[in-house]
Computed example of a mutant assay.
Amino acid sequence: MVTAQWPRIPQIPWHKDSGGVPVQTYNDLVRFTKYASAVYTPVCPRPLGNKLVAEFTNVVTGAHGFVARDDERREIVVAFRGSQQLEDMFTDANMFLVPHGINDTVRVHAGFALAYESVKAVMLETVNEQVAFYDDYDVIVTGHSMGGSLASLAGLAIKTNTTDLSVRIFTFGQPRTGNGPFADLVEATVGTENIFRGLAERTPDGVPTIIPKALGYCHHGTEYWHFAEPPNRKNVLRCEEQEDPKCSRSIPSTGINVAHDVYFGRCMYISCPSLPLA
Results as ranks from 00 to 15, higher is better:
residue 17 D to W: 09
residue 176 R to D: 03
residue 122 V to E: 14
residue 26 Y to G: 02
residue 152 S to N: 06
residue 51 K to P: 00
residue 172 F to P: 03
residue 141 V to S: 01
residue 222 T to D: 03
residue 72 E to Y: 10
residue 29 L to Q: 06
residue 170 F to R: 01
residue 113 A to Y: 11
residue 153 L to C: 04
residue 104 D to C: 07
residue 88 D to A: 06
residue 27 N to G: 10
residue 253 S to R: 08
residue 190 V to K: 04
residue 244 D to G: 12
residue 53 V to P: 02
residue 130 Q to F: 01
residue 89 M to Y: 11
residue 110 A to F: 00
residue 262 V to F: 10
residue 21 V to G: 04
residue 154 A to V: 01
residue 263 Y to L: 11
residue 163 T to F: 00
residue 86 L to A: 11
residue 200 A to Q: 11
residue 97 L to A: 08
residue 36 A to V: 04
residue 111 G to K: 05
residue 49 G to K: 08
residue 162 T to W: 00
residue 171 T to G: 05
residue 229 E to C: 05
residue 118 S to P: 03
residue 133 F to Y: 09
residue 254 T to L: 14
residue 123 M to W: 00
residue 29 L to V: 13
residue 244 D to I: 11
residue 144 H to L: 06
residue 54 A to T: 14
residue 71 D to V: 03
residue 243 E to P: 03
residue 208 P to L: 12
residue 56 F to H: 07
residue 40 Y to I: 05
residue 171 T to N: 01
residue 162 T to E: 09
residue 251 I to V: 15
residue 181 P to D: 07
residue 59 V to H: 12
residue 120 K to D: 08
residue 114 L to S: 10
residue 211 I to N: 04
residue 162 T to Q: 13
residue 30 V to Q: 07
residue 1 M to E: 11
residue 142 T to R: 01
residue 26 Y to D: 01
residue 182 F to N: 01
residue 227 F to Y: 15
residue 39 V to P: 00
residue 202 R to N: 12
residue 171 T to E: 03
residue 33 T to N: 10
residue 136 D to C: 05
residue 54 A to I: 04
residue 64 H to L: 03
residue 226 H to Q: 14
residue 85 Q to S: 12
residue 25 T to Q: 13
residue 71 D to S: 08
residue 117 E to T: 13
residue 125 E to P: 00
residue 9 I to W: 12
residue 96 F to D: 14
residue 91 T to M: 09
residue 146 M to N: 04
residue 162 T to I: 12
residue 188 A to S: 15
residue 243 E to G: 07
residue 140 I to S: 04
residue 151 A to Y: 02
residue 41 T to E: 08
residue 119 V to W: 01
residue 4 A to V: 11
residue 144 H to M: 07
residue 1 M to Y: 11
residue 3 T to F: 06
residue 121 A to L: 09
residue 241 E to G: 07
residue 203 T to R: 12
residue 96 F to K: 15
residue 96 F to E: 14
